[in-house]
Amino acid sequence: MNASELEKSFQKNFTDRQELGASVSIWKDGEEVLSLAQGWCEREQERPWTQETLVPFYSTTKGLASATVLLLMHERGMTPEDLVCSVWPEFPVKKGTIGQLLSHQLGLAALDEKADVWDYDAVIAAIEKQQPNWQPGSAHGYHPRTFGFLLEELVRRMTGETLGDVWRKKIAEPLQLDAWIGLPESEFDRVARLYPGKQNKEDLESGFYRQLHTPDSLVKRAFSSPRGLHSVREMNEARAWQSGFPAMGGIGTARAVAKFYQAACGAIPFFPEAMMPWMQGMRSCGEDLILCTQTAFSCGFQLDPIDMVGRKVRHHYGLSRRAFGHPGAGGSQAFGDPDSGLSFCYLMNQMELSPLPGAKSLDMIRAMYL
């Protein structure tokens, strides 16, 4: 790892890319080898950003939530090949497996029935009535919002508890992680304020954003299902911090998320050996019907897609084909690389628009492998 180049890239985010506050944490073989924190928790510059600053990280939550589900499955002697209906009898895709659900293959990304994100029972009822958006198993498409409700219902059916409570009890507390899916009031004063990104012409001309702004498109419907909690302003409210939404409600430090991925890739012994292929093994790869680009997924985690001869199409998750992680809206990025023993997390509060990682984190990832 070239620490000097990595620190230069981190500083460039502030000098050239309008970063406000940010942290990066890198671990290798069970130890944190780099930790940088800089900037401010708000534009008024009232609170300096430190290594202990908490920030919402949107879909980076999905990796943490998926590991929670997989750990419960392992404890119950289940595998990703088990049917979702074995846990949730009312689930609409009767032959759909948990592995297919976690790898975004079952076509429940967009809901026909209107339901509010704050009305859990209404969202679950809408899911149970939903006809798949495509033939299950024939394709894959990212489930930006429904994914969390799908995982939450599995956990509630298995344990009677919320996913956020199980995450804290079984993973976060044993690993001593400053990361929550449902933040307690005692931690509110540590949370940085998020600021929305600005659209530019290049964003608006991309296939994804054209579809996102097309009324009734599958992409538009997926990012609106269920409705509510769409603005960054709402994500700065205590109600959102406490919500515990497993698709987008995580809050924590970069150090905590990077340490989680140390455990997930095996550099810190924690997860059962049988879970590792579930998190690292590719289950879907190709054109994503929602993100309108090539993506790949394991059981709940993103991987870099590969081409016809097995080469990585891009390097969002480092150099290894087995590396896996999950980005979050606005620029958050985290992953673990089992082959190198490295894990990485970058969190910030000045958001960008891309749903996939951008230069702020990718420049640092390149420096990790120098």
Rank of each mutant, 00 (worst) to 15 (best):
M73R: 04
D178G: 03
R145E: 03
P184Y: 04
Q135I: 14
F57D: 11
T61L: 06
F188L: 03
L71A: 08
V166H: 00
V191I: 15
P80E: 10
L150I: 06
T97E: 07
V87R: 02
S66C: 08
L175S: 06
L54M: 15
F91V: 11
Y120K: 15
L70S: 00
T79D: 06
Q100M: 15
L108D: 07
Q176N: 13
Q176V: 05
A179K: 01
F147M: 00
K94P: 02
L154Y: 11
F188A: 09
G182I: 05
N133H: 03
V166W: 00
Q100P: 02
E173Q: 15
P80R: 12
V55C: 15
T159F: 05
L64R: 03
L194C: 04
H104W: 09
W134R: 06
S59Y: 07
Y120P: 08
K95D: 15
P80C: 11
K95F: 09
D121R: 10
Q105Y: 06
F91C: 07
K94F: 03
W118C: 01
T60P: 01
L101Y: 05
V166Q: 04
L54H: 06
E173F: 11
A109V: 09
R156C: 13
L175E: 12
A110I: 01
M158A: 10
P92D: 08
L194G: 09
A139Q: 15
L177Y: 07
T146Y: 00
R190Q: 14
M73D: 04
K94Y: 01
P174F: 10
G107R: 11
L101N: 14
E113A: 15
L183S: 09
V155W: 15
V123Q: 09
P80I: 11
E75D: 09
L83V: 08
E52Q: 15
P136A: 09
R145P: 02
S66R: 11
D121Y: 03
A122P: 01
G164W: 13
D121H: 05
Y142T: 04
